[in-house]
Design a protein around this nucleic acid. Structure first.
Length: 492
RNA sequence: CGGGGUGUAGCGUAGCCCGGUUAUCGCGCCACGUUUGGGACGUGGAGGCCGCAGGUUCGAAUCCUGCCACCCCGACCA
């Protein structure tokens, strides 16, 4: 499984295990595909959460929390949405266990404790939230309603893949209600920009903003916007989506408001989300054979200091110097860890922090103490330099910015060299098969053509880029007229 | 749900075809000592219902039957 995370055939299980272990309850297939996220992996998620949460709040959104369980009758209210998720819902049917009369010491479901109405474990929360919004919205003065929820959801996928498609995952889901169509579309696009900025500025993962085709659209949406990243193995990753829901949910849940003119109107809606899949994207965008490579802005530990010493006396001397650095780093908001464990040798520590993707490592030993220097190593290029102790803090803080930029630039140039414009289906097949990455081609706009191409090449339309230039051409498959290119790729 | 594969210590494995003492090796773990500028070394030690249940046999990790789990490839999907 972990081997699928990048193209290289190396054993990633070791560093992968630093982040996550799969839930593995003996003899129990029920939790297949769920994750146990270990503290270090979770810390990355917390960093992501913090930044996204800040960005949502800066754009006027508020957090709230809604139930995990959705009564089936609510779930099925918006038909397309219900139909789209029906195949992957976990359902609660009973509320009590009892001792099993046939098997002492074992429990069974109490057959008398059957629920009147089944409860769906949320695969997404539109239904329960819109049922609640009905009570919150009466007047145009109640709008816009801009709500976000941090939560877990469950989607019972047939096949799971760690971080990218787990049965249970953590995410944020935004749900908004607006007075006008225009305002709702603006909101969906605003969030897409937030996601794009987060991906590029924080994750250093370049993304293409675009629109989904009809077949890839969210169930119940009028339009689905997305950001698409490109992983090192040439496969695309849908990293976030923002949906313009029209009035579908307002109609399904009868959410109306009284306008300034005194008329009853249905509200307009959006929903949007990103999940722990982003951790998978982060891993697959930057990691190398030595382990994770984390962009400084999301690294739980930005700088690690490893002392090299013989005996307590040397350690004490080094520690008092390091204490000064730590104070200065903290003053600048740089997270720093001093690893003075005497149970591991320096080499083992170096390897460990490379595995964990810590952007900058400082080593300081007796020799450095004599020369008033430290050794600074950067994770992205693995370069080392000797720096005067007087300059450590300024050098490192510049280096963190440089690493962040370098990771982004590297990923951008990877994407550039793995994006191919083609005009014939032969070129198309060749590009998908041998090179991977994005293939930019004209498409006649029909689902039939999209399906055929998928069948023949396994590539799907990732998006119709928003910043597309209009150029007339002919569909790479059918030869029909087309006004713009779309991006195809094999995807996760 | 279809097609293929694999289950042996915390992890990775040898042994299985061709049944035969006390199940192999490496990593990791524990103790002591020596070490410490790129994953240290030595000595000693702990850890196994060989996936589960039946069967064949004097004898099963090995052969047979059934079941279970996991992985890969499809269908589905953020």
């Amino acid at each position: 499984m972990s081997k699928n995370l990048t193209k290289r055939e190396v054993d990633y299980s070791k560093w992968y295990n630093e982040l996550v272990v799969k839930a593995d309850l003996a003899e129990n297939s029920a939790v297949r595909g769920c994750m146990v996220i270990k503290p270090y992996g979770y810390a990355i998620w917390e960093k992501m959460q913090a930044e996204l949460d800040r960005m949502f709040k800066e754009t006027g959104h508020e957090n709230a929390y809604f139930p995990l369980f959705v009564p089936k009758s609510l779930f099925e209210a918006e038909e397309k949405n219900a139909e789209g998720f029906a195949k992957e819902c976990a359902v609660v049917t009973h509320y009590r266990l009892q001792n099993d009369p046939d098997k002492p010491g074992k429990l069974r479901v109490d057959p008398t404790a059957k629920l009147e109405e089944e409860l769906v474990v949320r695969p997404t929360s539109e239904a329960i939230i819109w049922n609640t919004f009905k009570g919150w919205i009466q007047s145009y003065r109640d709008l816009p309603l801009l709500i976000n929820q941090w939560a877990n959801v469950v989607r019972w996928e047939m096949r799971t893949r760690l971080f990218l498609r787990t049965a249970e995952f953590l995410w944020q889901e935004g749900h908004t209600a607006h007075a006008t169509k225009k305002e709702a579309i603006t909101e969906a696009e605003l969030i897409l920009d937030v996601y794009g900025e987060f991906a590029e500025k924080f994750m250093a993962m370049p993304v293409i903003k675009g629109l989904k085709t009809e077949s890839e659209r969210f169930a119940g949406a009028v339009e689905t916007y997305c950001i698409e990243g490109l992983m090192q193995d040439g496969k695309a990753l849908q990293a976030g989506t923002s949906h313009f829901l029209g009035q579908n949910f307002a109609e399904a849940f009868d959410v109306k408001y009284t306008s300034k003119e005194g008329k009853q109107e249905y509200v307009w809606a959006t929903s949007w989300g990103v999940s722990t899949r982003l951790i998978g994207g982060l891993i697959m965008t930057h990691s190398d054979d030595l382990g994770l490579v984390l962009p400084p802005r999301l690294a739980p530990i930005q700088v690690v200091i490893v002392p090299i010493y013989k005996g307590d006396e040397q350690l004490a001397e080094i520690s008092s110097k390091v204490d000064v650095f730590i104070k200065e780093f903290r003053k600048l908001g740089i997270s720093v860890k001093f690893d003075d464990r005497d149970t591991f040798r320096p080499g083992a520590k170096f390897a460990e922090y490379e595995l964990k993707g810590v952007p900058v490592r400082i080593a300081i030993g007796k020799r450095d103490m004599e020369n008033n220097t430290v050794e600074i190593a950067r994770r992205d290029t693995l370069e080392k330099q000797s720096v005067s102790q007087d300059d450590v803090v300024s050098v490192v803080s510049k280096l963190l910015v440089e690493i962040q930029d370098n990771l982004f630039n590297k990923a951008i140039s990877f994407r550039e060299t793995h994006t191919t414009e083609v005009d014939t289906f032969e070129e198309f097949k060749e590009a998908i098969k041998t090179k991977g990455g994005f293939v930019s081609a004209h498409w006649d706009g029909t689902t039939e053509t999209e399906d055929k191409i998928k069948e023949l090449t396994k590539a799907t339309i990732r998006c119709i880029p928003l910043k597309n230039k209009i150029e007339s051409g002919t569909c790479v498959f059918t030869g029909k007229n087309s006004s713009q290119r779309v991006l195809f790729a094999k995807a996760y």
